[in-house]
Nucleic acid binder design. Sequence first.
DNA 1: CAATTTTCATAACATCAAGTTATGTTACGT
DNA 2: ACGTAACATAACTTGATGTTATGAAAATTG
Lengths: 315, 315
Amino acid sequence: MKIDPRHLEILAAIVDGGGLTEGAEAIGRAQPSVSRTIAMLEARIGAPLFEKSRRPLVPTELCIALAGEGRRILAAGNTASAIVTTFRTGHRGMVRIGGTPVFMDGVISTLIAEFQQNRQIRIEQCYGYAQDLMDKLDAGTLDVAICPMNPAAVSSRFQFVPVLPGRNVIACGSHHPLLRKGSLRLADIAPYPWIAPPASSPLYDDMRHILRDIGVTDTRISFSGGTLASITAILANSEALTVLPYSVVFMARRQRIVSALSIRIGHPERMLGILTKDPESDNPTVRRFRRFIDTEFRNLSRFIQQHEQNILWRD
Amino acid sequence: MKIDPRHLEILAAIVDGGGLTEGAEAIGRAQPSVSRTIAMLEARIGAPLFEKSRRPLVPTELCIALAGEGRRILAAGNTASAIVTTFRTGHRGMVRIGGTPVFMDGVISTLIAEFQQNRQIRIEQCYGYAQDLMDKLDAGTLDVAICPMNPAAVSSRFQFVPVLPGRNVIACGSHHPLLRKGSLRLADIAPYPWIAPPASSPLYDDMRHILRDIGVTDTRISFSGGTLASITAILANSEALTVLPYSVVFMARRQRIVSALSIRIGHPERMLGILTKDPESDNPTVRRFRRFIDTEFRNLSRFIQQHEQNILWRD
DNA sequence: CAATTTTCATAACATCAAGTTATGTTACGT
DNA sequence: ACGTAACATAACTTGATGTTATGAAAATTG
């Protein structure tokens, strides 16, 4: 005998409320409605649920047992409602994000940890470069991409919200001898080996341009192919140099492991930004994540600007 | 946002079954029905529950969370069904029974314990004599009465199922000197004191008749007003005599504390039986209890008859 | 004890979710 | 690319649930 779970809910409400009227109110219905529902339930079960002709309604043993189950159903329904609410307010759910490796490791991961505070949100992260990320957004396997792009060159199928200029710096270990030098010249830099980003990454191109600009010719590559963790470790324990996004070095400044050389280098025409396919159709969690990233980056941008004013950039 | 618990059940069934078709079958509906239900649910919630355009249906994070609650609801519903089933088969519920004190204590209580084996049944017992019990049956505060009555004199408003002749015996402690005597005469019995049943009980009248029949004139009452437990204790620790229903002494024979004198006494025209108001309208538990009492008493009756054949009754 | 109030039951009707069968679509495997 | 299996849609029927209005009965109160 299958019983409608809503009927059990009503039963629980009546037993707990102490009467038909209270139960009806508790569950948001009119009294006659629940009265008839109970009558039908009794007919189906074939046994009375309340003692007849008693005014403060007295539940049967059977009724009390069933009301117990009804209470469970009520509880499950409430938590289900809560789940939906937390989901709709973006406090629960999943966000699939992708971005360039160094940037995800060096900046985004820190923000993610903060975003997950007080929320039950799962982040599925993947790494990739611009084209890759756009393909995934198209395929619907990614909600948000965070990557450097030329805002003018973004397809109209995507929304691109720029948040930071895509500036790079020459990074080194915080113990590096060049940091103690007053002014840097080509001859000073030339002797040191370089860590190369992956050949397919934009950073790699950036580095090539920078080296050409400052006149370094035969670059000695001492390490390549590592993610940020490896790069940081190498920088910390050698005198190698590399090119990293300023924001990454900025975020890492707290650990006092890596620093940036005070040398002005040309920076690309790209902006770091949030790339999405159809911002309106995203679920609340994704929206909230985008908003969060956006505001955090604007804060970061301000910090970086303040920081830059305290540094003398030399040629 | 209130969610229909049945929808959550369906969700759970789909997630567990791995597809719409399986889920629909599990819950006993046609596939299009659940398809539309899910569509409506998604519309209400405002978020997809399954990933679109994927053929082995892939549930969303949100969906999995909600399905968890649905599973609870399903479980509660199942136990509710089980409760109803056990109730309908008489394995659960409550029976309100009443009867004459000595008889309830001496016979019925033992049977109740056996009846409750493997069942979740609450017994509400009360004591009373015939008129009292009929009033309570009339008032609907009693399901079954078990008492001695003259079958011919039972009102047609009641059903009376006789189960045992209302025979009495003279009871004594099992150490009693009279038990060692060959044949008993009035002079043998006369010296001993008597325990009197409550004045309002049928047993009291029985005792008076018996004493008159066997010629005892000035009866010495040593104890009165006690229930069976007290009477038994007095019998065990004195040489007092009393009148008890044969069935009570029979049930007590195991403890070897009380015995019956082998003296034939007149017995009343009453039958012990099961008295009910409206046997058809009773719930399954009560019916089952009546059936149980009936068959147990028939067994008891056979035992008693076999037992009697092994005893020489003297005048 | 009668009057009043409270509480539950019933009636009559409207509405909407949910059931059905029949029939597309569409993703996936061969 | 083609067939199959699985899901979606359509059109219609049914039945539970909602409503208001009202009746009946028990409990309370003066």
